[in-house]
Amino acid sequence: MHKAGKKSAESLSAFLGNVLGIGCFAFMSFLATSASALFVSDYAKWKTMDASDRATYAKGMFDTFMIAYPADDDIARAFGLDNCAADLKLSGEKIAEFVDDYYETTPKERDMPPFVVVNTVVVLGLCRQHINSERKSRGLTPLVSAP
């Protein structure tokens, strides 16, 4: 294998290992929250959780979007979200605040699960530019719909 290609493959392998670790952590975070938090289906259930559980749940939801399979779309999304999280310093608390703000400002959407809110507001909203930058670097078209 070409030297640059080998380095790229090693870098990708290390990144995917980290993403897998994040995915496992996210899953364990889901298990660590209360049983009712495993199936948060709307605003009413979201608001029954205390702030710490909402932050843990929110970070877990975000992290699940970073799980990548060996496909260019998934890898571009994972790298883009990783860069977005670093640039915007996205913590569980901050992501939970975005969910809270969305529910407060769009009451007609309160039947929407928080997972969909994170996808809409954070992944497709705040992080779209980062994802599209990674997609462009891989020769992919820009993200225009749900990943």
Rank of each mutant, 00 (worst) to 15 (best):
C84K: 01
A78K: 00
S91Q: 07
G139E: 00
F65M: 10
M1H: 08
I131E: 00
L140H: 02
D63G: 03
L31K: 04
F27V: 15
A44R: 06
A37G: 06
M112Q: 14
M1E: 10
S52K: 09
A26N: 05
N18D: 13
T106Q: 13
V123S: 01
D111A: 10
R54T: 12
S13E: 13
A58F: 04
L81C: 06
A35C: 11
V123N: 00
A9L: 05
P147Y: 01
P142H: 05
N119P: 08
R128V: 10
P114H: 00
D72G: 11
V122P: 01
K7D: 14
L12V: 09
T105Q: 10
A85V: 05
S8H: 07
M112Y: 09
P114C: 04
K3H: 15
C24H: 13
G125Q: 03
E109S: 09
D82K: 07
R135V: 00
A86E: 12
V117Y: 00
V40E: 02
A44D: 08
M112G: 11
S34L: 04
W46P: 02
P113K: 04
K108G: 08
Y43V: 08
T105M: 12
F65W: 07
S36M: 15
V122A: 01
V40Y: 01
L90K: 02
N18S: 12
N119V: 14
